[in-house]
Amino acid sequence: MKVDKQLVDKLANLSKLNFTESEEQEIIKDLNKMVDFVDKLKEIPVDGVEPLIYMIDETNVMREDEVKMEITKEEALKNAPLADSDYFKVPKVLKKK
């Protein structure tokens, strides 16, 4: 399985990361190494095997529909990179012309 620039661009877009030219060259190389490495798993036949998804034995873990308020508005906004007294603020999504 070969990782090329087109795939890296798509992945970078999905994971919201930017790479400079040289960084991109490096990540293409690294990803190829990593994908080659994990391709080894193809050697193991898995017919009839169910995927292991949950690591605990319990099911139906639920909570009651009871209110438990633990933080205030001020606390909620405390770590915001930008906020006013009531809202988180983010630069607008640019409308594409």
Binding site: K16, A80, V90, P91, K92, V93
Partner: peptide, 21 residues
């Protein structure tokens, strides 16, 4: 967006996310 480092230079939401990360 809601917490953590935000790149100051970004003026548009997409860049906020990509640059910060």
């Amino acid at each position: 967006i809601h917490y953590g480092y935000r790149d100051k230079g970004a003026t548009e939401m997409e860049d906020v996310i990509r640059n910060s990360r």
